[in-house]
Amino acid sequence: MNAKPMTPLQRVLTTLGHQEPDRVPMFLLLTMHGAKELGLSIREYFSSADNVVEGQVRMQKKYHNDCFYNFFYASIEVEAFGGQTIFRDDGPPNAAEPVIQKREDILKLQVPDLAKAPGIQQVLAAHRLLKDHAAGEIPIIGVVMSPFSLPVMQMGFEAYFDLIYEAPELFQRLMAVNEAFCVAWANAQLEAGATAICFFDPVSSQTMITPEQYRTLSQPIAKRTIARIQGPTATHFASGRCLSIVDDVADTGTAIIGISADESPAELKAKSNKRLSLLGNLNGIEMRRWTAQDAEAAVKAIIADAGAGGGLILSDNHGEIPFQVESETLQAVSAAVQEWGRYPLKWSR
């Protein structure tokens, strides 16, 4: 029996190799909860790398989290393109008015200079500080929006879908700009200390577009982009379904797939056939009203479904746990992983 527990990084790397570590790794993808820890407003919290680092360090210890999640908020990327962010006290910041007001604006769009984007620089500073705290033992997760999904914030959902169907040349021009930005942004995070990049791509889920559209429009972009990102990636569909495109997602070269609470981990695991590891799929929305017993049952169900043989990182299904989820619930999730996630999983057989 191995008496010494693995470090979080060893645990994660073992499961990504489709071997069983000492226990199922757990990524509690907490962002805004750091503000609660520090007694700050969400806006104030995300205004400084020091705050986010302190929040992540405290939460990693409190919940025995197997990662640092250095994600501020999605619209930080839109800020780099000249957009604004709207903050609220009880939820994630949102992108304000679209930076692309009309289709012709795409022709003028330039790849932002990361050095001139203050929000981006705060995230990079946080990576550098977290690297010291991680001491090579805790993976640090950086985040990018995929080139294909970023336009929802750049121009709005409706205008973007209209663009895809009605103006293919402008769509390609927008993708070229976003692809260059995404690669530069991801690699800057890796250089600053990120261990891996979570490639958020909700618009590519089969909830949003057809598998055929994924194969012809989105997947080639994801494949090119991921090939140029100089570190491992996890593709996350932020609650969207992905069963029909699992093979195509694996072909992009990504290592991990973030899965929806709407789909079966067992089915996804079988279909991905060790080409991908699973990240998910606790229902973050329901989690708000879970009892400790609910949390335990949910954790056990996922582990029983997809834990055997490794290839599973237990997490929520969206890539961000809602601000309304209480600390007691998060502790109950963590305790359940500690108790039921120990390998070998004799109880589930």
Binding site: F161, I164, Y165, Q206, T207, M208, I209, T210, Q213, R241, L243, S244
Partner: peptide, 8 residues
């Protein structure tokens, strides 16, 4: 049912 997409 997962047969069609939101864009459709």
């Amino acid at each position: 049912n997962g047969e069609y997409s939101l864009s459709q």
